[in-house]
């Protein structure tokens, strides 16, 4: 079994409208690509980042500071990838803007 790693990092919601349905879709879609368990924490609340429904219940506004918590074999990669998503404000990745480009990603 792969070695389990744990990472935590503070992230800021930079998308224009906060964690709306669209950023939540992108975030959950990305999180699901990793094996690790991925959570987002805010005081008194923890949600599963692979569940779009859960993410939405955060109702995180623009500027909100959240804690990203990742445990699992690919945690290091996951936390980098997801933190970068937060930093980019969940701009559509080339893969989404143009489905045909999907194969070239990575």
């Amino acid at each position: 079994m792969a070695e389990t790693q744990s990472y935590r990092r503070e992230v800021t919601v930079k998308s224009e409208h906060g964690l709306h349905i669209r950023p939540c879709t992108v975030l959950a879609q990305s999180a699901m690509k990793f094996q690790s368990r991925i959570h987002l924490n805010k005081p008194g609340m923890q949600v599963d980042a692979k569940s779009i429904l859960d993410l939405m219940t955060l109702a995180a506004a623009p500027g909100a500071v959240l804690e990203l918590e990742v445990d699992g074999p690919d945690a290091a990669e996951a936390i980098e990838h997801l933190a970068a998503l937060f930093d980019s404000g969940f701009a559509p990745t080339p893969a989404e803007a143009k489905p045909s480009a999907a194969v070239s990603v990575g």
Binding site: I21, R22, C24, T25, S51, I52, L53, E96, K98, P99
Partner: peptide, 20 residues
């Protein structure tokens, strides 16, 4: 256009939501 399709991909994610 892709921007209109986004709402359906959100619905798809909701319907597939493992927790749900």
């Amino acid at each position: 256009g892709a921007q209109y399709a986004a709402i359906f991909s959100a619905h798809l994610m909701l319907a597939r939501d493992e927790k749900l």
